[in-house]
Nucleic acid binder design. Structure first.
Length: 557
RNA sequence: CUGCCCGUAGCUCAACUGGAUAGAGCACCAGCCUUCUAAGCUGGGGGUUACAGGUUCGAUUCCUGUCGGGCAGGCCA
């Protein structure tokens, strides 16, 4: 399978043949564009303009020579020269017709490629500490991370989904203290309530279950409460297990799964933190100052040196972070992608510098980061900032319950990660074309309805003659379908699922326009079968595309 | 103050990584259901791509500066 444009490839071969004759020595990077203006044909090549300078020739004259040497092909209806030296190709309808059986034969494989076969990637996302329910920002990460994993898997990569968290630090101590206070009957606002405590209602729930000696099981741990309010260790372990379980439920509601939960504490117990520190010291990149141990990260592009070991002998979080990424590399992941909020951007230079200083043979750009901006939530024309359950923020679960998993996924993926997003709850609930997720799903449901009405077996369309597909809407739709594989590949390459979201909206638009212009279930069998075959190919692209985004494709709406 | 990211129609966003006349949706205006789902479609007005330079055949895209917005910067997680 390929992740390029099927017709571009064939055209590239033809042009390449001509270029070998016209310009055997001057190499040219063969780029084939799809012109925005339909009058400029289906494809255009700027090869003549690129060659003009090295060959010291007029580009239009070169274009003419390329055309003269172009092998004859049934794909090309017409090729002409325009503008400064563009060569425009107009393809025959038959060239486009060839795509429909290709798509239908590929089925679920349409848009999948094996470019990444044999390569391993680790995607780290969400990575929330177990101190509360997941918030909408985690939702954006979950949607992005899951989509990116799907996109890379579709390119043949072996993808591993990892969730990294700390179950031992200062925040966890605060969590335990909050639960303990609640268990002792102290409430937020009381004089005895700790200053830095968590105030959400869920703290009271944890305290109640702790006192009732409940057992709790999450995807990566299990614990039974002692019920003793003075047993802070039991409180801590119970609270962590409880909140991990809550997060599991949040993720399940969002249909996101992980292959592994990685504990920061394990980096200490396994000796990796210590070993990393040794590596950095041995590399001669550290120095003592003011009683602390520093790493010369400025040697690797960071804007200031960083403390690794504080004057009190404890580590900053920076050392385990480096240790963790060395571990990722040593576990065989040649590529690592971290999905985090933009507030973490300061760590990028630091971690990469630490990895370079460790001299473990890790490439300079390792790991990759995808940073996303904040999500704000609007409902009834007002910004929603708090929820009862979590206290100071809106949770992912709130959003899913108010709307739907599909809407939250689609919306959170619809914008570039680095643009701020305002989630409009009322829009996500709208059942009209203001709401883009319905627009795409509706196209799919309409196709399904047509097939239901038709009642035939789709196999009978396999040898359909597609010659009747000549209407402008039909050509436009086939041209759009041809772009699907490269759209998926581009979305993966750029870590940009929004490109696929955008594509699906445009594809659905092409379909709806066609649906309104032509009836499918017409008397003429040849026309009917040809149109049904194209509708079937469209259905395949919508289903495959939505699946990569984690959005369902209902057959009825 | 310093670093990173972002500035495209009234609003939310695209633009195939440097291509030709910068495109969609919303909103506004005017139309289309006895026919496979009107959760849909068709047409219309809307732009100095924040601003000023530079690179070249050609710039929304690359470089420099200015302005505006976001995020970060401490022996902090």
């Amino acid at each position: 399978m390929s992740n390029t444009h099927p017709l571009k490839e064939q055209l590239a071969l033809l042009i390449g043949t001509a270029l070998d004759i016209v310009s055997p020595d001057a190499p040219v990077s063969l780029e084939i564009e799809r012109p925005k203006n339909p009058a400029h044909g289906d494809f255009s090549s700027n090869a003549a303009m690129q060659l003009a300078r090295p060959l010291k020739k007029n580009p239009r004259e070169l274009a003419q020579r390329i055309l003269t040497e172009l092998p004859a092909s049934p794909l090309i209806a017409k090729a002409d020269i325009a503008g400064a030296g563009f060569i425009n190709f107009h393809l025959t309808p038959a060239a486009w017709h060839g795509l429909v059986p290709q798509i239908r034969t590929a089925g679920a494989q349409f848009g999948r490629a094996d470019a990444g076969r044999g390569h391993k990637m680790l995607v780290e996302f969400v990575s929330a500490n177990p101190t509360g329910p997941l918030h909408v920002g985690h939702g954006r990460q979950a949607a992005l991370g899951d989509a990116i994993c799907n996109l890379y898997a579709a390119q043949g990569w072996e993808v591993f989904r990892e969730f990294y968290y700390n179950d031992a630090g200062v925040q966890i101590a605060t969590l335990a203290a909050s639960v303990q206070a609640r268990a002792k009957g102290v409430k937020p606002g009381d004089a005895d309530w700790p200053d830095a405590a968590y105030n959400g209602d869920y703290i009271a729930d944890i305290a109640a279950d702790f006192l009732a000696r409940q057992s709790v099981k999450s995807d990566d741990r299990e614990f039974t409460a002692s019920g003793d309010v003075d047993d802070i260790d039991s409180i801590r372990q119970f609270a962590v297990a409880y909140l991990r379980h809550e997060q599991d439920l949040d993720l399940k509601a969002f249909a996101v799964r992980f292959d592994h939960y990685y504990l920061e504490s394990s980096l200490y117990t396994s000796g990796r933190v210590e070993a990393t520190l040794q590596k950095l010291v041995n590399a001669g990149k550290t120095y003592q100052q003011d009683g602390a141990l520093w790493l010369r990260t400025t040697d690797y592009g960071d804007d200031k040196d960083r403390v690794m070991k504080k004057s009190d002998g404890t580590y900053t979080y920076f050392v385990p972070d480096v240790a963790y990424h060395i571990a990722k590399w040593e576990r065989g992941y040649e590529r690592a992608i971290n999905i985090q909020g933009t507030d973490h951007h300061g760590t990028i230079a630091r971690v990469r510098a630490g990895l370079q200083a460790a001299g473990a043979g890790i490439p300079e750009g390792y790991p990759d980061y995808l940073l996303h901006t904040m999500v704000r939530v609007m409902r009834g024309g007002e910004e929603v900032k708090i929820s009862k359950r979590a206290g100071s923020y809106v949770t992912l679960r709130d959003l899913i319950e108010w709307t739907s998993k599909d809407a939250v996924r689609f919306f959170l993926l619809s914008r570039k990660a680095d643009t701020e997003y305002i989630f409009d709850v009322d829009l996500a609930l709208a059942k009209n074309n203001d709401n883009p997720v319905y627009y795409v799903q509706y196209a799919h449901a309409r196709i399904c309805r047509v097939f239901e009405e038709w009642g035939g077996m789709t196999d009978t369309l396999d040898d359909a003659d597609l010659a009747p597909l000549t209407a402008p809407h039909e050509l436009a739709l086939m041209q759009r379908l041809a772009e699907y594989p490269e759209t998926v590949a581009g979305a993966a390459r750029d870590l940009a699922p929004h490109l696929l979201v955008h594509y699906l909206q445009v594809l659905a638009g092409d379909f709806h326009a066609w649906y309104n212009a032509e009836k499918f279930l017409v008397e003429d069998v040849a026309t009917r079968h040809a149109r049904l075959a194209l509708a079937d190919a469209t259905r395949i692209a919508i289903v495959n595309g939505l699946a990569l985004l984690g959005v369902s494709a209902p057959e009825k709406m």
